[in-house]
Design a protein around this nucleic acid. Sequence first.
DNA 1: ATGGTCGGCAACCGA
Length: 257
Amino acid sequence: MKIATFNTNSVRARLPIITAWLEREKPDLLCLQETKVQDPIFPAGDFEACGYHVVFSGRKSYNGVAVASGEPVKVLRRDLFEEDEGQARFLEVSYRNMTLINVYVPQGFEVGSDKFAYKLRWLEALYSYVADAYDTDSSLLIAGDFNVALTPLDVYDPEHLAGGVAFHPDEQALLRKLLDWGLVDLFRKHEPGPGHYTFWDYRIPNGFKRNLGWRIDYILATPPVAEYSSSVWIDREARRLSKPSDHTFLTAELELD
DNA sequence: ATGGTCGGCAACCGA
């Protein structure tokens, strides 16, 4: 089975890219973030037209998460904690015998800002929720845009970016807690080296061409699931299409079913 | 070469 994640930076603006990708790659599950659309006008018909089911939790203008799936999924939860209600950053679903949590972690603006403090509370709440609701022998996947790069291997210029937002020790420590609890970073399981990114900031001139990127999108899995991952890849071609998102697709293949 | 990111959504905000 195949699972992927993609921060769309508007699902409506990215529909041609998403539907073509679904038809070519045929994942079982695709997690989407930053859909930026209210539920009543989510373009579900475009997903159904290429043979996918889709569930979503959105709001006007900002955030928004969705899961497209070949088989229907059941929505288990739409809010991580009280403070985040209505923010459309969290979507937990069940798929066959597994649970999938799709996250869009707050970006955090600047270290020391209120938004940064909120990002830390959000990551803490994610850890608490997962550690309370699951065991490490559960069949759990967490995928999405975490807005945190974990190690110097995961950003283009670790010395220059050290201590800044999305590469700050307080954020890294909270994401690290999830890994220490037992979740496996599936991309890192297969690729130990530097230079592999999932996000390139639009504001950096030729940032993609120069590979000035960040690895801030992840697919995490508990050990009983992670042991079946056979390959994980980043689709750099999708970043070369016309009108690309600033992120690209991250895909994990699991030798299951 | 007199420019230099996107998308949403209607003036800027968020990333």
